[in-house]
Amino acid sequence: MIALNYHEEVQDLFDSDPTYVFAHCVAADAGMGGGIAWTFRHRYPEMPAAVLAAQPVVGDAVRYVSDDGRVIYNLISKGSSAQLPDRSDFEDSLRALKRALLAHGEKRLAIPRIGAGIDRLNWSDSAGFIQELFADTDIEIMVCVLH
């Protein structure tokens, strides 16, 4: 089964309507020194400390609410910023994200091509997994692509 509310858009993630929550991949050390995580760190400089305070473990989805009310899920897909994630750890963090979105009644998710940048996971595999994982929900997933 494939998610019906999944679509890819050519747009900057940060231009998304504020009704969307964000999600992106980070390490448990919350380094956020590369890829789109670097952009998140600079837009929300207090977020890394909040993620660390949650004492994240690989497979978590750490929810953060910014001062402007934007909800951001930090998917803990690896232990250290120097590592590459295992596919199973990445998928565990997506399962945690799904549980959190449902628990908080959040129905709109905007993401980059998570895991496909500096983490080098195959986007086609990830997109298929995301669609299957969320197929039994009414959560809208918008993947923002810059080109």
Rank of each mutant, 00 (worst) to 15 (best):
I118F: 14
E140R: 04
D67R: 06
D125E: 13
V65M: 06
V21R: 03
N122V: 11
D15K: 11
S80C: 15
P85N: 11
A100Y: 01
H42S: 09
A135R: 09
Y73T: 04
A3C: 12
E140M: 02
I114M: 05
A135L: 02
A49H: 11
A23M: 04
A103C: 05
F134N: 11
I2M: 13
V65T: 15
P56L: 07
I72S: 10
V62I: 15
L94D: 07
V65A: 06
A28Q: 12
P85C: 14
F40P: 03
L52S: 13
I111N: 05
G31R: 14
W123T: 07
S124A: 10
K78C: 12
N122M: 06
G31T: 11
Q131R: 15
L109R: 05
A50H: 12
F40G: 01
L75Q: 10
R41G: 00
G33Y: 09
I36H: 08
I36L: 11
L52D: 10
N74Q: 09
G59E: 10
G34R: 15
A27P: 13
D136Q: 12
A49E: 15
G33F: 06
D29F: 04
V51N: 07
L52A: 10
A116K: 05
C144P: 03
N122Q: 12
V71K: 08
V58I: 14
L101H: 10
L102V: 14
A28S: 15
H147G: 11
D17L: 00
I118C: 12
I130K: 02
V143Q: 01
A103L: 08
E91R: 09
T39P: 02
A37W: 14
D86P: 03
G34Y: 09
G59D: 13
V62N: 02
G59T: 10
S81P: 10
D86K: 15
A82R: 15
P18H: 05
S126W: 03
G79T: 13
K98H: 12
L109M: 03
S93L: 06
P56T: 11
V58S: 11
G128V: 02
P48A: 03
L52W: 04
A96C: 04
M142I: 10
E9A: 07
L109F: 01
R63E: 11
Q11F: 00
A37F: 10
A23E: 07
M47R: 03
N74G: 03
I2C: 01
W38T: 01
A50I: 08
R120E: 15
V26E: 02
S66I: 00
R87K: 14
V58A: 11
A116M: 05
D136L: 03
S88W: 08
M142S: 12
N122G: 02
E106W: 00
Q131T: 02
A37I: 08
E9Q: 11
S81E: 15
E91K: 10
E140F: 00
D67N: 10
I139Y: 09
G33V: 05
S80P: 09
G59A: 08
L102F: 00
V51R: 07
A96P: 03
N74D: 13
Y20G: 00
E140C: 04
F90V: 06
A127M: 07
L13G: 02
H7L: 08
I72N: 14
L97Y: 07
T19K: 09
